[in-house]
Simulated assay, not measured.
Amino acid sequence: MHAVFKYNPSMHNVVQVGEGDYNSCRVSGPSRTYTSGNDHIQLSRGGKAFFICSLPGHCQQGMKIDVTA
């Protein structure tokens, strides 16, 4: 199973973060950042994944999602 994110890469990104960083809208540790605008991300079956846009203010305005695979 995979997640697909389509967006304008000059205005947004997708960062896979842990649950704590998802809840606080920050990137504090090693995280994978996607910037293609058409990202296909493999998800682990039976787990949760957390994604945010790390551009200033975007996550705080709701640009975040958690996915259960």
Results as ranks from 00 to 15, higher is better:
residue 1 M to A: 11
residue 1 M to F: 08
residue 2 H to V: 03
residue 2 H to I: 00
residue 3 A to W: 01
residue 4 V to Q: 07
residue 6 K to H: 06
residue 6 K to S: 09
residue 7 Y to S: 07
residue 8 N to R: 07
residue 9 P to Y: 04
residue 9 P to D: 11
residue 10 S to V: 09
residue 11 M to C: 11
residue 11 M to Q: 15
residue 11 M to A: 15
residue 11 M to Y: 12
residue 12 H to N: 01
residue 12 H to L: 03
residue 12 H to W: 02
residue 13 N to S: 05
residue 13 N to V: 08
residue 14 V to T: 06
residue 14 V to I: 15
residue 14 V to L: 00
residue 15 V to K: 00
residue 16 Q to R: 13
residue 16 Q to A: 14
residue 17 V to T: 00
residue 17 V to E: 00
residue 17 V to Y: 00
residue 18 G to H: 01
residue 19 E to Y: 01
residue 19 E to A: 06
residue 19 E to K: 10
residue 20 G to H: 01
residue 20 G to L: 09
residue 21 D to W: 00
residue 21 D to Q: 02
residue 22 Y to N: 04
residue 22 Y to K: 03
residue 23 N to A: 13
residue 24 S to F: 01
residue 24 S to H: 01
residue 25 C to R: 02
residue 25 C to A: 02
residue 25 C to K: 03
residue 25 C to H: 02
residue 26 R to D: 02
residue 26 R to V: 00
residue 26 R to W: 00
residue 26 R to L: 04
residue 27 V to W: 06
residue 27 V to R: 04
residue 27 V to L: 05
residue 27 V to T: 09
residue 28 S to I: 09
residue 28 S to D: 04
residue 29 G to N: 10
residue 30 P to L: 08
residue 30 P to I: 10
residue 32 R to H: 09
residue 32 R to E: 12
residue 33 T to R: 14
residue 34 Y to G: 09
residue 35 T to L: 06
residue 35 T to S: 14
residue 35 T to W: 03
residue 36 S to H: 05
residue 36 S to T: 12
residue 36 S to M: 05
residue 36 S to Q: 06
residue 38 N to V: 07
residue 38 N to M: 08
residue 39 D to F: 02
residue 39 D to T: 10
residue 39 D to N: 12
residue 39 D to G: 09
residue 40 H to S: 13
residue 40 H to Q: 11
residue 41 I to K: 04
residue 41 I to V: 15
residue 42 Q to F: 10
residue 42 Q to L: 13
residue 43 L to V: 12
residue 43 L to Q: 08
residue 43 L to F: 09
residue 44 S to E: 15
residue 44 S to H: 12
residue 44 S to N: 15
residue 45 R to D: 12
residue 45 R to K: 12
residue 46 G to D: 03
residue 46 G to L: 02
residue 47 G to P: 03
residue 47 G to F: 13
residue 47 G to K: 15
residue 48 K to G: 13
residue 48 K to N: 14
residue 48 K to M: 15
residue 50 F to S: 09
residue 50 F to L: 12
residue 50 F to H: 14
residue 50 F to M: 12
residue 50 F to E: 06
residue 51 F to G: 01
residue 51 F to I: 07
residue 51 F to K: 07
residue 51 F to P: 01
residue 52 I to P: 12
residue 53 C to V: 07
residue 53 C to E: 13
residue 53 C to R: 06
residue 54 S to W: 04
residue 54 S to R: 14
residue 55 L to G: 13
residue 55 L to S: 12
residue 56 P to Q: 07
residue 56 P to Y: 03
residue 56 P to R: 07
residue 57 G to S: 13
residue 57 G to H: 04
residue 59 C to P: 07
residue 59 C to N: 01
residue 60 Q to W: 02
residue 60 Q to A: 13
residue 61 Q to P: 03
residue 62 G to T: 05
residue 62 G to D: 14
residue 62 G to N: 13
residue 62 G to C: 10
residue 64 K to F: 07
residue 64 K to L: 07
residue 65 I to K: 04
residue 65 I to N: 00
residue 66 D to T: 12
residue 66 D to W: 11
residue 66 D to M: 14
residue 66 D to R: 14
residue 66 D to H: 12
residue 67 V to R: 06
residue 68 T to N: 09
residue 69 A to H: 09
